[in-house]
């Protein structure tokens, strides 16, 4: 009788929302207080663009060069940093690329492009989960999120939410629930947007 092989759950950064989560965690580790995340789905140019910019401590030219090397990391706990090389690989697999612009002491901007229709382009994944986890886990960091699909777009700025909330913490369960709902709705509308001859339209 053939022994049933043990089932290993597939692991890895299997969609773009997990990559985004990973890169934003880098920003936070670099001391960022405000992180901007922008997703642009441009069907006409057949492009998916993911842009993450922060006001963290930035990288020197040398570190940027090394950032593409999977055997380099600034961390001391373990020796291998894989976040940026993995994103670079995912972009490359979909005929895109990864660009890093960084000023030491000012911040970093990471831009990943993908050919939208490429068969190997990873799906965008669950952006609601990524954003809710980031906001709830880092209440002192401000996030500006923008998701654009041709002419349709929505954004969420936690700095503005905090102003409205006054003394209520942003990671209060009721607030997190409301933020989760807002993301869910926004993402659903963008996802369901139908294509017509002028591009995407809200249905």
């Amino acid at each position: 009788m053939i022994k049933t092989p043990c089932i290993v759950e597939q692991v890895g950064l299997e969609d773009i929302s997990l990559h985004i989560m990973d890169i934003v965690e880098n920003s936070i580790c670099a001391g960022a207080k405000r992180v901007k995340i922008q997703i642009i789905e441009d069907k006409h140019k057949d492009l998916l663009i993911v842009e993450i910019s922060d006001d963290g401590k930035g990288m020197t030219e040398e570190i940027i060069k090394d950032a593409f090397d999977p055997f380099f990391t600034t961390k001391t706990v373990h020796q291998v940093g894989l976040g940026l090389p993995l994103l670079a690989q995912s972009a490359k697999e979909a005929e895109g690329e990864l660009r890093i612009v960084s000023k030491h002491g000012k911040g970093t901007k990471v831009t990943a492009t993908f050919k939208y229709s490429h068969v190997d382009r990873k799906p965008l994944g669950n952006m609601t989960e990524t954003m809710v986890v980031l906001i709830a886990g880092n209440p002192s960091v401000d996030f500006l999120y923008k998701h654009k699909k041709d002419r349709l777009d929505y954004s969420l700025d936690t700095r503005r939410i905090k102003v409205e909330l006054e003394n209520v913490p942003i990671d209060h369960p009721e607030v997190i629930k409301a933020i989760q709902k807002a993301f869910d709705k926004g993402e659903r509308v963008i996802k369901d947007a139908k294509i017509n001859h002028r591009g995407f339209e809200k249905d």
Binding site: L82, L86, T130, G137, P173
Partner: peptide, 27 residues
């Protein structure tokens, strides 16, 4: 939430915890 954590499902773990905390309104 290192790359290793995220790749093996840390986001799901945190999301499940957030869901339960918001469901029970634990402050």
């Amino acid at each position: 939430m290192g790359t290793c954590g995220i790749a093996s499902g840390a986001r799901k773990v945190m999301s499940a915890l957030i869901d339960e905390i918001t469901r029970q309104n634990i402050t």
